[in-house]
């Protein structure tokens, strides 16, 4: 299991959520390739130190994400507009401009994946939703709804196994063909969905029977507050972001300071 005793696990989840999601807006407007290169490097360093994944998994995740991110920009690289041609054959047209844009897009996706991974691997669902209720005033019914739903995942997994086993007992797995495949898929989805809906309804009725969220004032089992760690977190994040911008200004690695120009 991951060690939950690290700094990033102890930050107020709402603060972490808001700051991390606001990074989307910061990097959405970055058009300087150098900034994106340095930012992705600094977030990679941050990820290395704070992520909740163990070393081996972490390495493969980063490698695969990097490859996928660059691939995701392949349309821009291969078929983008531009005037300084590097390679041209029939429809494929690689230009310096489109290559720079493609790499920027790839690195942006890569950075967001890293940031998302930092958040996902260091945030536990229960404190997260408690914090949403207490700090961000998310209505109790929605937050507890999410918590109850999370608790149903293992039940759904078990149910899925049951359907698999029932199909095997009745010999459905030996039948072949597209029709059988369609039937099997609908059996899985309809059964799982119908059961989940019924279970959610029963849970809701049980909660209301115990007068859940029917009174204005309530107390919380977990009190999520603030600590010195939150300040550390803000400082670390600010350092990572600003050093990305500073390094790109003083140590530009490429001439592409605005990929939309040229």
């Amino acid at each position: 299991m991951t060690n939950t005793n690290t700094l990033f696990f102890k930050i107020n989840p709402s603060l972490k959520f808001i700051l991390i999601s606001s990074l989307f807006l910061v990097y959405l407007f970055v058009q300087n390739l150098n900034t994106m290169i340095w930012a992705s490097m600094f977030f990679l360093i941050l990820y290395y130190f704070v992520s909740g994944l163990s070393g081996k998994w972490s390495f493969w995740f980063v490698l695969i994400t990097l490859i996928v991110s660059i691939f995701s920009a392949s349309a821009m690289i291969l078929f983008g507009k531009g005037s300084h041609i590097i390679y041209h054959q029939s429809l494929i047209l690689i230009t310096q401009e489109s290559l720079a844009r493609g790499i920027l897009l790839g690195l942006r996706t890569f950075t967001f994946s890293l940031i998302g991974m930092i958040f996902a691997t260091t945030t536990l669902p229960v404190p997260f939703f408690y914090s949403l209720m207490q700090q961000l005033r998310v209505p109790v019914r929605y937050a507890y709804g999410c918590l109850a739903a999370f608790r149903m995942i293992p039940i759904m997994a078990e149910e899925f196994m049951h359907i698999c086993q029932a199909m095997r007992v009745r010999g459905m797995t030996r039948q072949k063909g597209i029709r059988v495949f369609w039937e099997r898929m609908t059996r899985y989805t309809i059964t799982m969905l119908a059961q989940s809906i019924r279970r959610a309804q029963r849970t809701a009725i049980a909660m209301e029977a115990k007068r859940f969220s029917m009174t204005e004032k309530r107390t919380y089992f977990y009190e999520i507050g603030w600590s010195r760690n939150d300040i550390f977190f803000v400082v670390i994040l600010l350092l990572t972001v600003t050093s990305g911008f500073l390094f790109s200004a003083y140590f530009p690695l490429t001439p592409f300071t605005n990929v939309l120009d040229h």
């Binding site: 929605y142 709804g145 995942i153 759904m156 989940s196 309804q201 809701a204």
Partner: peptide, 18 residues
């Protein structure tokens, strides 16, 4: 929306999230 609607919606959303 009552609690039942919210819970059903969120459970469905979670299934789709998965």
């Amino acid at each position: 929306l009552n609690l039942s609607d919210i819970l059903v919606t969120i459970v469905i959303a979670l299934v789709f999230g998965l």
